[in-house]
Simulated scan of single mutants.
Amino acid sequence: MFWKIIGVVALIWVAMALVGVLVKGLFWIVAVSAVVFGLYLLFKAMSGSDSNDVTRV
């Protein structure tokens, strides 16, 4: 029983370490994407388009 608990704790620890690495690595990609999308929406709002549809090309 002791080794099962140690194994579960080790598995959770490894999973949390992997999730932390992914979040740290993807944070800047998500941040830059949000800024670019915000600038796109601002451009569409300022362009005087009659449509409110963001996906219309």
Score class of each variant (00 low, 15 high):
W13G: 15
G48K: 08
K24L: 13
L18C: 13
A31H: 05
M1W: 10
S47G: 05
V30I: 11
S49G: 12
W3H: 10
K24A: 05
V30L: 13
G38F: 01
D50G: 12
I29R: 08
S51T: 14
V8P: 00
W28L: 00
I12M: 05
K4M: 04
V8E: 09
V35N: 00
V14T: 07
F43P: 01
F2D: 06
G25Q: 14
F37I: 15
I12G: 02
V32F: 12
S49L: 14
K24C: 05
S33I: 06
W13Y: 09
D53L: 14
M16W: 03
W28H: 04
D50L: 12
V57E: 07
A17E: 08
G25M: 14
G7N: 07
L26A: 07
K24V: 07
A31D: 11
V21A: 09
V9G: 02
K4I: 03
S49K: 14
V30K: 11
L39R: 04
K44N: 04
N52P: 02
D53I: 15
K4R: 12
A31Y: 06
L41M: 13
K24G: 05
F27Y: 08
S47H: 09
V36N: 04
V54M: 11
L22H: 06
F2R: 10
R56E: 09
L26I: 06
A34W: 00
V54Y: 15
L26F: 08
S33W: 10
L39F: 05
L42S: 10
L39I: 06
F43V: 08
L42E: 05
S51P: 02
W3V: 04
V30P: 01
